[in-house]
Design a binder for these strands. Structure first.
Lengths: 265, 265
DNA sequence: GCTGTTTGCTAACGGTGTTCACTAAAGCGT
DNA sequence: ACGCTTTAGTGAACACCGTTAGCAAACAGC
């Protein structure tokens, strides 16, 4: 295992005795985020309003300020939850196949990513779309940390792939010194750096991620809606290219219609 | 030239005598869109308000309803203008190199696309980002048509590439019948269909566009900001891969700093 | 039971999109 | 040049929104 430890939540301060008060507080905060999320999917990002959320839970808007520092902060918290949810969905799909079949695990995970995105387009947009002008004061760390946790989901698979020596590393001559520096920074920030992970591998990972991101974004944002009704063939084609470059065995999806296991909701 | 005619604006009804009244009307509409665009770049998409626009031009908000059917429609119009502007920028860059040097033209155009996107991130988000819940009644056709015009900018280059037989068409066995149908629909809608353009070529075009879209979106939306400061090396690397697949000669950018010619603004 | 903290409320300010009724002006036909 | 029609633009109003300030009730710990 090359990865530096990333999946340890209990490094925090001791959390003994949630102290009834904290418990109910946590509960209402969860309710707030839940309702906000419903409004998000129902009326879009702009349709989330503190007043509406408060109304729906029998409160008034100013009361919410005891839990959230503003509408922007609320959306950040919701986004963070979404990242966790997406990570869970991918992990669940990953866990649904034989653990030693790396090829199938990769394939399944990537399809699960797309599947979740298609089933939750508005949420996906909030997570991976442009971050409008984020009101300078807003604290983005919750979403960023959740995004990193999500990234880790793929990192461990990629790490496995790397350990199995599936793909040839690209010619290091193609990697300029500055690119190498950027890649190193990327790996460090994500906890994906380890003595035995060369920058060439990080390069491959970045490229693959960007390609996956591109095809899913294109599909979910609907920028080819007016031109192509079903983008699954194109996705599968791109997926095949991707996996081939990674030395992973591709196989067409089984279910012709909607695919990708998802236990949640 | 394989392309069906796409660049003829005068197919419309005869537009003799703009009739003073129509002229001033067009002028104020242009002013409205201009101010809205300024507010867009200054305060983000959510920062565009009819009242603010009206105020800035010495009017009241309801007056704008003589020109625009609502805030959403206004944003659609602005987006349409942006597509035209982007198309012009790319075309200008394309025209700045020797017309017969197809390789350099492609390279220059693609870099111009990224360059414009980086210089106009908010606008790019409005054009290529998620279309939030677009208020069912809104008419998107202006933006869609402008987007098609923009697409044509790249189509003619790709067409040239195809005519020169630069790249090997992918194995037609990889293209399932349904994918073929989708690709055909894509080509038809875009006016990119012609007797001598095989679906395999459309496939290549789509794939390339998705990859370009992915890397530029990733960069402009800033999803790797916290992890990678300068994404130019990654872009150039992906560009190199892309062009290699297309049989186009790659060469590193000349100016180390900001690049891509842009005569506008 | 008293005290300090937490929670939620009301009131208020300034901002928004949008509709409606209305005036004033510009254009046009004769 | 007159009158009529179309258009441009206004003001008031309604229903929302985010956010702040001040205040009352509920709660926790001593």
């Amino acid at each position: 295992m090359y990865l530096s430890k990333m999946t340890e939540p209990q490094v925090d301060v001791e959390k003994r005795a949630p102290s009834r008060r904290e418990r109910v507080r946590e509960a209402t905060l969860a309710e707030i985020k839940g309702i906000a999320r419903n409004h998000l999917v129902a009326h879009g990002r702009a349709g989330v309003s503190l007043r509406a959320v408060a109304r729906e839970m029998g409160m008034t808007a100013p009361g919410l300020y005891r839990y959230v520092s503003g509408i922007d902060a609320l959306l950040v918290l919701v986004t963070a939850d979404l990242f966790d949810e997406l990570a869970d969905a991918v992990a669940a799909a990953d866990a649904s196949v034989a653990p030693e079949d790396t090829d199938l695990r990769i394939l399944t995970s990537l399809r699960a990513f797309r599947g979740w995105a298609l089933r939750h387009p508005v949420e996906f947009a909030a997570m991976f779309g442009p971050h409008g002008h984020p009101t300078p004061g807003t604290d983005l760390t919750p979403a960023l940390e959740a995004a990193r946790r999500f990234g880790a989901t793929f990192f461990v698979l990629f790490d496995r792939l790397l350990a199995e020596g599936r793909f040839a590393l690209p010619d290091s001559g193609l990697i300029t010194p500055e690119l190498s520096r950027e890649l190193q920074a990327f790996a460090d920030t994500c906890g994906f750096s380890a003595p035995h992970i060369p920058v060439e591998a990080v390069m491959v990972l970045s490229t693959c991620w960007v390609r996956l991101y591109g095809v899913v974004c294109m599909e979910v944002f609907g920028h080819l809606d007016f031109v192509m009704r079903d983008m699954e063939p194109l996705f599968e084609s791109e997926l095949q290219n991707l996996l081939t470059d990674l030395g992973v065995r591709y196989q067409p999806p089984e279910n012709t219609a909607s695919d990708t296991i998802d236990t949640s909701e």
